[in-house]
Every structure is written in structure tokens, then in C-alpha cells.
Amino acid sequence: MGNLLPIFHGKGKQVRKSTSSLRQKIFNITKRITDIIASTLFLILLIPLIVLLFFFYTFGQSKGPLFFKQERIGKDRKKFVIYKFRTMEVNAEESLKANEALYLKYIENDYKLNPSEDPRVTSIGKFLRKTSIDEIPQFYNVLKGDMSLVGPRPVIELELTEYGDRVNELLSVKPGITGYWAMCGRSDIKYPERIDLELFYIYNQGLSLDVKIIIKTIWLVFTKKGAY
């Protein structure tokens, strides 16, 4: 973890950079303006993709709603609905909980399942996940203000137990479409290492780090590294 956390020392504790309240306010305002502009542009560009996917979701294994919606926990424990392109069969969450063996594997694998091992994932869903296209609708969450372009990945209620007494630190900022954990490998990095990476961003957030994360994430998406 040493290479991933350049500002890290002691018994799992990270160094929080001292920033003036004015500097923090400027960062927050700049970040929000960037979020609004970027998400608006992406949503406009998204229209042709929605039309194309809507056609594929009218028949076959993928037939059903285009979007997947799930409750996540955001800044200050505010609950919100996250949007993705649906990559699984309809009623996938119910079928997961009904399959005890599969659900246990889901928990043990940090609340994820490899699409190649998950019978609920559709053929087009595997492609959407591998290319990260399924995440694109989250720009709507960014525009709404529930999320930001960069931040810790939004978690479900059950995942909060992984953070223990550090959960309030995780929820002190808006979750992001991408973040330091995503930049360092996404699904290749599991809990508890993921916790240190998510909190590293919170302790060291700034415009330069955001730009670095966005550039690295774009490279990861094109190389399909860490995708699930």
C-alpha cells in the first residue's frame, strides 16, 4: 500500500492536510461548478446512447427497464437513489437474496460478483460493465448534487459496517463517479485496503488531485483495468 498512499503513516492513520476555510470554500465552489458543466455536457451526449440502448432493451434477455436504481448513502448520511444502465435481469436483487450461496459469495467478495460468475448479468450487461458504460447515468446524480465527479464511491447501507468508527469521515464529503480507490485499481482492491484509499482522498482533496484522478480513471476505463 506504500506506493498507493504517499501520505500515510502510523497505525493506519492518515495525515490530513491543513487548509484554510477560504481555500476550502473556493475548492468547493470550483468543484460544484465543474460538476454542473461536465454532467450537463455528458447528459446531452448521452441522448443517442439512451436511444440505442432502449432498442436493445425491448427484447431478449435484457428486456425490461433501461435504468437500474438503488439506494445509496451520501454526504452526511443522506440517502439518495443512484442511477445506472441495468446490466442484470429484472428482479436481480430479489433473486440474489433468494440464493443463499450466491448472496454469501456477494458479501465475502466486498458486495460484488464477477459478471462471468453471476448468472443474473445479461450479455449486453457484461459489455456495459467491462467498458464502464453502465456508470454513465450517474452524471444525473452529479447534476442533482447527490454526487460529484470525484469522491469516494457511494456505498450501500450494509457497506458502512466496513468503516467502523471511520464512517463519519467517509460521509463527510459527496461520493463520486470516480475517486482515489478507482484510480488505484477499482475492483482489484478490496476492503480493508479500499478504506484507506477512500479516506486518503478525503484527507488530501484538492483540484490537482481531482485532475490526476480523472485523467488516470479515463486511462483505466480505456484499458478496462479493474472493471467489474
Rank of each mutant, 00 (worst) to 15 (best):
Y163A: 01
N168E: 15
R153E: 07
L170W: 04
S172K: 09
P175I: 07
L160F: 01
P137K: 08
Y180Q: 00
Y180G: 02
G145T: 10
D146G: 06
D165K: 14
P152R: 09
D134L: 07
A182I: 02
T178H: 03
P154A: 04
G164N: 14
L158F: 00
R186T: 08
F139I: 13
T161R: 13
E159H: 03
K190I: 01
Y140I: 15
D146M: 02
I189K: 00
S187L: 07
E135Q: 06
R186F: 07
D146E: 14
L160E: 02
V142H: 12
P175E: 04
Y180H: 07
G176R: 10
V173F: 02
E169R: 10
V167Y: 01
T178G: 09
K144I: 14
G179V: 07
W181K: 03
Y191L: 02
V150D: 05
I177G: 13
V142L: 12
E135N: 06
D134I: 10
L160N: 01
M147S: 12
P154H: 01
A182T: 06
E193H: 02
E162A: 12
E157L: 04
Y140H: 15
I156A: 07
L143H: 05
Y140G: 09
V155C: 00
K190M: 11
G164W: 12
W181D: 06
D134F: 05
S172D: 09
E157K: 12
E159Q: 15
L149T: 00
F139A: 13
R194Q: 09
G185V: 08
G185N: 08
M183T: 02
L171E: 04
C184P: 00
K144N: 15
I136C: 13
L170M: 11
G164Y: 11
G185Q: 03
N141W: 05
G179N: 13
I136M: 15
L149G: 03
T178F: 00
V150R: 04
I156C: 06
G164D: 14
S187G: 08
G151R: 04
D165P: 00
P175Q: 07
S172A: 15
L170A: 08
G145W: 06
V155W: 00
E169P: 03
L158K: 15
K144W: 00
P137S: 09
L158A: 14
I177H: 07
A182V: 14
W181I: 09
E157V: 00
G145C: 13
G145R: 10
K174C: 13
P137F: 07
D134R: 06
V167R: 04
R153Y: 01
L160H: 01
W181C: 03
R166K: 15
R166D: 10
R186H: 05
E157N: 04
I133R: 08
N168F: 05
K144D: 05
